[in-house]
Design a protein around this nucleic acid. Structure first.
Length: 561
RNA sequence: GCAGGCGUAGUGUAGUCUGGCAGCACAAGGGCCUUCCAAGCCCUUAGCCCGGGUUCAAAUCCCGGCGCCUGCACCA
């Protein structure tokens, strides 16, 4: 399997799919450049993602900033939970993770403050394991990249794109005309300062994500019609591997209905982009490995040469994020749920008469009025002069300064925090998986091919003259111009033998090649060669543009020609 | 971060032990040839990870750094 990784590393670099970034300066691990082929591959992949997850379900698509203020990531829990503490030896300078050093002295290192940690180190005289030197002050090691906003405001590069959606929930909810379920999608880069990222593009410090936050009313009954009659490959938290029908999985309560819904969509999506369906499974997280925000998570794992690899996560985040942002920002992050039937409630309320309170209490009037409004009492128990305490003063409010109302009020609904189901796609891992799963070598020759589906293929067509002479070349160039004018990404190649040129195209997954040969000059036909079958069909040059468009959009298949 | 291994044209490698002209294959570019799947021939481009030291002389020996790989740790 290691051999496969080597071959893929070769092809990705040589043919311009991706490579390690900042190469001329020695490289920085965890950063990659997508080259001309890879950048288009990613773009096409995201287009398909938009079609299959966003347009098809009418989701809202947004684009929020990558840098956020301290307050946002404090509220989200990342500042606390995405941090490790470390100490540096004052004599040799080596750094150590605190929890490793003190784990023999305390039960739960994660709960301590930096001060407490310093105290424990001093009391137990913990020394540097390397040189026995003394330790300095406790420092934070953030998995988040921190930066400065303006002169001195602390900011972070987002470790996930999700917060940009949660923060905007009230606005988006209004734009969606206050309807749930509401799905919001975002594509963008996220940043994590991994200590030692390896495994190539599978673990990067700057990576591409496509995320959906589906906001639902936890009390609303799930629409069972969303569940299809298909088989899901699951691995539950108890280690049970099973293939189970989606309907059955839903009925048995194995996972939230929307999680199952997304499992179905993900299966079909992965199939469409060239992933081998027999190498997909959904693995449920154990309690201990759940992220700080999640109640239940299912990873979509794909089997590649590294083993089963998490590529997509479907997390049930509950109301964690909205709640935290509501508490810390004070904004109302709730949605409104209409009761089936209007409810009637009795209201016993004091209505202050401001025209009397105002002149009488001046500046304190508003506060007194609020306090009166907030009073709770039984019907017919309030009359006469009221003693109202505000800021330590007790005011006597006479009867004529208020009115008591006892009314029956209609209540049509209530406010609540929606729950969130979050499918989160690791785009770079997906791209790597696609490359591994679409890679094959021809049986007879061993030549390398990437079997990209036409819709995904970065380059759709190669246009080749059989010979670069006898005006075959000029006809081919003419065709290339036509293709480009029609918005089909193609290239012209006359170098080397025809077989060599086909092989070149195969390596970057070009699905179709047009060859201009001598017969073209006689009857105005060219051949279309399909990558995987290497079969050719003759087609009139004038139909080329329309035919190719359909082939590339996968509206027709090559066999149907 | 720790331990071990490694770092030579775009890619894969030889040369390193034992210091003395940096070589091969593939790829790429140009040309000849060629009537459908990497044919052949000629030419060309292109490299010792970075810095310091030892030496008449360093890809080779020493030191430091950076990067990569494997394992541990970390990470979803």
């Amino acid at each position: 399997m290691k051999e496969l990784r080597g071959k893929i590393a070769d092809i990705t670099k040589r043919r311009g799919i991706y490579w390690g970034a900042y190469e001329i300066y020695g490289g920085v691990s965890g950063f990659y450049d997508y080259g001309p082929v890879g950048a288009l591959l990613k773009k096409n992949l995201l287009d398909i993602w938009l079609e299959e997850f966003v347009y098809s379900d009418g989701l809202l698509f947004i684009d929020a900033p990558a840098i956020g203020p301290d307050s946002v990531y404090r509220a989200s829990g990342h500042v606390d939970k995405f941090t490790d503490y470390m100490v540096r030896c004052t004599s040799c300078g080596h750094a150590f993770r605190v929890d490793e050093l003190i784990k023999d002295f305390v039960d739960n290192p994660d709960l301590l403050t930096p001060r407490e940690i310093e105290k424990i180190i001093e009391e137990n005289d913990i020394r540097c394991p390397d040189c026995n030197g003394k330790f300095g002050k406790v420092e934070e090691f953030h998995l988040m990249f921190s930066t400065t906003i303006g002169l001195d405001k602390r900011g972070f590069l987002r470790p996930e794109t999700a917060q940009g959606i949660f923060i905007n929930f009230p606005t988006l909810y209004r734009i969606n005309r206050e309807k749930l379920p509401m799905g919001v999608a975002q594509i963008g880069k996220a940043y994590r300062n991994e200590i030692s990222p390896r495994q190539g593009v599978l673990r990067q410090r700057e990576f591409n994500m496509a995320e959906i936050e589906l906001f639902v009313d936890p009390e609303e009954k799930f629409n069972e019609e969303l569940i299809e009659d298909i088989e899901l490959p699951l691995l539950t938290k108890d280690g049970v591997e099973l293939k189970i029908n989606a309907k059955e999985a839903y009925k048995s309560g194995l996972a939230n209905g929307y999680i199952i819904y997304y499992m179905q969509k993900i299966l079909s999506f992965l199939k469409n982009i060239g992933i081998n369906v027999s190498k997909i499974r959904f693995r449920q997280h154990h309690r201990e490995e759940l992220a700080h925000y999640s109640k239940d998570t299912w990873d979509c794992e794909i089997l590649i040469s590294n083993g089963w690899t998490e590529v997509i996560g479907i997390a049930y985040r509950g109301d964690y994020d909205l709640k935290r942002h509501m508490e810390s920002s004070g904004a109302d992050m709730r949605a409104f749920r209409k009761f089936e039937k209007e409810r009637k409630i009795r209201i016993n309320k004091i209505v202050p008469r401001m025209e009397i309170l105002g002149p009488r209490y001046k500046a304190a009037a508003m506060k007194i009025a609020r306090a009166m409004e907030d009073m709770e009492f039984e019907e017919n128990t309030v009359h006469g002069t009221l003693k109202i305490e505000v800021d330590g003063h007790v005011y006597d409010v006479p009867e004529e300064a208020y009115e008591v109302i006892n009314v029956e009020k209609k209540v049509s609904g209530e406010r609540f925090l929606p729950h969130v189901i979050e499918p989160s796609f690791g785009i770079d891992r997906l791209i790597y998986s696609i490359i591994e799963h679409t890679y094959y070598e021809r049986q007879d020759t061993g030549y390398k091919v990437l079997r990209f589906p036409p819709r995904l293929a970065p380059i759709k067509v190669g246009i080749l003259p059989l010979m670069a002479k006898d005006s075959l070349d000029s006809i081919a160039r003419e065709i290339m111009k036509e293709m480009r004018a029609a918005g089909i990404n193609g290239y012209y190649d006359e170098s080397g033998s025809i077989g060599r040129r086909y092989a070149r195209a195969d390596e970057i997954g070009v699905p179709f090649c047009i060859t201009v040969d001598y017969q073209t000059k006689e009857d105005n036909t060219v051949t279309i060669r399909e990558r995987d079958s290497t079969k050719q069909k003759r087609i009139n040059k004038d139909e080329l543009k329309d035919t190719l468009k359909k082939l590339v959009a996968e509206e027709i298949s090559f066999e149907e020609l």
